[in-house]
Design a protein around this nucleic acid. Sequence first.
DNA 1: CACCACCAAC
Length: 664
Amino acid sequence: MPLRTTASYNALIAGYFRNHLPDAALGLFHRMPSRDLGSYNALIAGLSLRRHTLPDAAAALASIPLPPSVVSFTSLLRGYVRHGLLADAIRLFHQMPERNHVTYTVLLGGFLDAGRVNEARKLFDEMPDKDVVARTAMLSGYCQAGRITEARALFDEMPKRNVVSWTAMISGYAQNGKVILARKLFEVMPDRNEVSWTAMLVGYIQAGHVEDAEDLFNAMPDHPVAACNAMMVGFGQHGMVDAAKAMFERMCARDDGTWSAMIKVYEQNEFLMEALSTFREMLCRGIRPNYTSFISILTVCAALATADYGRELHAAMLRCSFDTDVFAVSALITMYIKCGNLDKAKRVFNMFEPKDVVMWNSMITGYAQHGLGEEALGIFDDLRLARMAPDGITYIGVLTACSYTGKVKEGREIFNSMGMNSSIRLGAAHYSCMVDLLGRAGLVDEALDLINNMPVEPDAIIWGALMGACRMHKNAEIAEVAAKKLLELEPGSAGPYVLLSHIYTSTGRWEDASDMRKFISSRNLNKSPGCSWIEYNKMVHLFTSGDVLSHPEHAIILNMLEELDGLLMESGYSADGSFVLHDVDEEQKAQSLRYHSERQAVAYGLLKVPAGMPIRVMKNLRVCGDCHSAIKLITKITSREIILRDANRFHHFKDGLCSCRDYW
DNA sequence: CACCACCAAC
């Protein structure tokens, strides 16, 4: 048996740590015949990889029987930086007996990751001998902060540049929307590696130039996995799912990023089932999901509202220690919200520190979607107490909450306060929230006034909000104004015609209504198909409007639907026929109200979901008004609780009432 | 120790 050197043991220890086998590494460390400083350094570096073993790394450093070297200290410093413990890193840096250029560069990276660019620059200036690595780190720090002029100045000042510095500068231009400048540098750089090619490729993809990206991809000497992954994402962003899938299938060397890119492509293009099955296939092949694939799959879960699967994912995330990442936890919160589990969402939210603005927004928007105005405003107050700066999306959430709960006074105050806050740019989305708020509250004239005086061009969403308000408050005159504008902006869509005919009907203008109906049926207008689904027994059961027969258990579903009809009739319910018309845009070929997809899903839920458990139904479009009334009554007759998530919001039905208070 | 990919809210 060959004699093993201490150095080879040390290398093996480092390898075990890198491959997520800390126990094997520790075992070997304790078993090895003799240890040198390199062994202790490997141990410290390994224990610094995971956040929860950082204290062990610090203890190991303190207990080395030999005098520690710069490398020993720097390994722990790297651990602190990696896990965002910048205060500890700074403290350690100052305690260190000596520092080399690596030490400086590690801490520099810490400042840059935290966005503390000016402090990074201060440290950089204090650095005795600045090597090309430190310069490049500083340069890319400026680029990430969007300070491209300073980055370029640093680049021009550099005494020596290597391919990494060139690539950093190219990437900086590319990420800051200067793809032409990036290309110019790319053309003149002395030598390129595959990272340079990939950086340029990503520049094109982020600028939305898929064709240029494809040309560059074809010109590349070889195709690194990162470039293929980026290309897939680029295809996905342009709806080219087939191209992305072809790339995925052609690739022989896939990494975890490839899998998460494929899942992301499916998720983004609403191929939700494909996203789920791809994630499952990845697990089957024994590939550890990285946190990005968790994020994508949580987003899929949120869209499908598969609560049980979502809970499983949460458990898996905890096992992988991904619950420390803001992005992943935000996705988790949104998943719980969209699955209707607000308590759990709030608990996850409360536990996570430090929260970023997106996380606050997730929570505020979540409450708004559930029609919980008080709670949304409460979180908004907490946000301000925490001295967190709200952004434009925060206000969309808060205004939506006010709108859904009729808080006109609060909404007006908040809207006006936005104008004072110079860091918030008032966009069309904010105006549409406000138009919606005023319109729902019956202040249709004021809403029209607001539109006429707004500084940005009103879009289809704004006119649509006004139109909806007109229908709610039976204002045919303003509805016609809004419809005309809507038809200019979106000539192919059926929505405005349908709304208009509905308003004519409800205001007694029968002839106009009839003309409108004829017009709608004579033209082939865009109608999106309505569908609803329900998660049962780890499966998603999908129902489409007017088509009961495609479900394998259609016989019992039909029975249930008929039974429900009988019960509804007995309690004096009569179908509101006016919604048949309204539903032309919502339900493709709606033949009968009771075949609406949400009604089928509710029937299936009543059959399958155990008594005492709420029935959770999802719908891709806005809930039909007649179904809304029927479901209210169903909860009273059957003493069941039904939670329906439609395209806009949640409806919690219980004891014959809905949480939206019929205001939606 | 620096350059490329996979990443949350509307």
